Simulated scan of single mutants.
Amino acid sequence: MNTSTPRSPRILVIATVLLAVCGLGLLAVPHGREPSGSPKAPGSSAPVPRSLAASTAKGSAANDVSALPPHGEGVAGDRAIQEALEAAWPADLPPGDARQLLAMGRSLLRADATGAGHGRWPTVFTAEGRALAPAFARFRIQAAIARRDNGGGRAVVHLVWAGADRGGTYTDGRITDWRFTHTTRKGSPTWTPLPRT
């Protein structure tokens, strides 16, 4: 019998919204053509997707962002993913706490995905975990937000990222959540990462 704790309803809502927006975006892209409408030169940055540029030009609210970039869009699509996350889950932490949590969440994800930096987080990564070879290469964080997690001095850092697995398959839109608790160390408050369950 599985007695695991249910996931946060906010995460399920965010995932549902992201999937729905991705689906709508894919339906809007003509088959066989680049969604940006112009060819991309190697090494150049791609233009902002039309749906995002149009909504920005109108001065519309974040809820009007109609589509996320298609998978494989690369760095050019990261801004749209970040804006979609922020629109789906409005900020609810003081800016200083959010910055601290985002820095720690990014560091934890990098250590987890690449294997580099496990020693910095001994309470999160066990000795056995440190011996593992890196699981992902060409690692990139596409978007990240830090939000309260069911109140009571807890927070979650929600990250969307891309990377190539051991088989060489590069995939973007991967999702990882790191949970934290607010504690006091040596008289000063800080956020402490919780081990994965």
Rank of each mutant, 00 (worst) to 15 (best):
S36Y: 12
P90T: 07
P95V: 04
A46D: 09
A88Y: 04
A80T: 13
T16N: 05
W89R: 00
P70E: 13
A87S: 15
A20W: 10
Q100F: 08
D112F: 01
L108E: 06
S36E: 06
L85V: 08
T114R: 02
D78A: 14
G43S: 05
A46G: 15
A91H: 10
A116H: 07
L102I: 15
W89Q: 04
I81M: 08
A61Q: 04
V13Y: 05
A91S: 13
G115W: 03
V13D: 07
R130E: 15
A46V: 11
R50H: 04
I14T: 13
A57E: 10
G32R: 12
A84L: 11
L108C: 10
G23P: 00
S55P: 04
A20K: 04
P90F: 03
L24F: 09
R99S: 11
P49N: 04
P94F: 07
E34F: 15
L108M: 09
L108R: 03
G43P: 00
S45Y: 06
L19F: 07
P42V: 13
A80W: 05
L27Q: 04
T126Y: 08
P39T: 12
V75S: 12
L109Y: 00
A113M: 01
V17I: 15
R33N: 01
A88P: 06
V124H: 14
V48Y: 05
